[in-house]
């Protein structure tokens, strides 16, 4: 299987493609999934977690046995049981239901805020990196200035101005991560810009917009995807952190961070599941997203689709000549 999916044919275009790729090649999604499972099992596991998270978020109302704020005054601080799978909190609310609804909230906040941040990063990073010169100089100094303030201070100020609430959290986190992320996009634009094919597109007479969209953007997609997935995880954590500090989404909304802080911390010793369960949920979600993101980045690069081992020989030749020269000189390592 493995040899078939890392096609040997790639380096020798004249020979036919391997069978597996042909069979799955008709359906792009199926083919992608097939390669994901075979080449990146951990990534596939991450993808499964992401899908589970998404489905839980979408169908929260169906899955959860109770509403997130349904209070059962008699069953307060009940440990996990057949009736309450993950126990109940100090108000007798079903923790399982709250986790499920919390997934919905997390998914909404995470995707909205991350998408916003990626758009901001891409726009600032690509324009600043591609145009360079004075424009780059000014925009980067603005970014510098913004990044001088600790995140937490910006968050606290922004929340105190805008007030707590779901959309406020989305805007603040999107802006915060977007501006700092523009640095990463810019630096990869700077290196992509050096490529001869960019020169080729310019000398061909392609418009700036075309170069940005057709050549620069696809070639900085890898860092953008990494940015997206790490930021997705970071936003979930940041939102939890904000809620933990009481600056996020106000109760009774079941934010995982809020659950961890308000309920978990106060009853840590009487009812440890109140802290453990949202913590585990957070960990699994962040882990899954990160694994999936890494795999996605590699799979989307056409060069990684069964890279020919011939590249290794080429890589050897480029392999840090100065250290190689030292080695050849007999220097001890």
């Amino acid at each position: 299987m493995t040899t078939e999916t890392t096609p040997a044919a790639v380096t020798m275009p004249a020979s036919p493609r391997p069978p597996l790729r042909e069979r799955l090649g008709d359906n792009k999604i199926l083919g992608f999934l097939g390669r994901l499972i075979v080449q990146r099992p951990l990534g596939a596991f991450g993808a499964a977690i992401c899908v589970l998270l998404l489905l839980t978020g979408i169908f929260a109302d169906v899955i959860a046995p109770e509403g997130y704020n349904h209070i059962n005054p008699i069953d307060r601080l009940k440990p996990p049981s057949a009736e309450y799978w993950l126990g109940t909190d100090q108000l007798g609310r079903d923790v399982f239901s709250r986790i499920v609804h919390g997934a919905q909230l997390s998914v909404i906040v995470a995707f909205a805020a991350t998408s916003l941040s990626i758009v901001i990063s891409a726009v600032i990073g690509i324009t600043s990196g591609y145009f360079g010169g004075r424009f780059d100089m000014v925009s980067q100094r603005v970014v510098d200035g913004w990044m001088c303030f600790p995140d937490l201070i910006i968050l606290i100020v922004a929340v105190s101005v805008l007030g707590p609430g779901t959309w406020q959290v989305i805007v603040i986190l999107g802006l915060l991560f977007g501006i700092s992320g523009s640095r990463i996009v810019r630096s990869s634009v700077l290196s992509v810009k050096q490529n001869v094919y960019i020169h080729a597109a310019q000398s061909m007479g392609a418009s700036t917009l075309r170069i940005l969209v057709m050549h620069i953007l696809p070639n900085v997609m890898a860092p953008i995807i990494v940015l997206f997935t790490t930021r997705l995880a970071a936003v979930i954590l940041a939102e939890s952190g904000l809620s933990f500090l009481g600056l996020g989404i106000p109760p009774p909304a079941p934010s995982w961070g809020g659950m961890l802080s308000l309920d978990g911390r106060s009853y840590m010793f009487q009812a440890p599941w109140l802290a453990i369960i949202p913590g585990v949920a957070l960990t699994i979600a962040v882990f899954g997203i990160n694994m999936f993101g890494d795999a996605l980045r590699d799979m989307l690069d056409p060069r990684m689709r069964g890279a020919g081992a011939g590249r290794y020989v080429a890589a050897v030749r480029r392999d840090r000549p100065s250290s190689r020269a030292r080695q050849a000189g007999g220097a001890s390592q």
Partner: peptide
């Protein structure tokens, strides 16, 4: 161009 590897957009 001279460089057949860099002159084509890999994507």
């Amino acid at each position: 161009y001279q460089d057949p590897f860099g002159a084509l957009d890999p994507r």
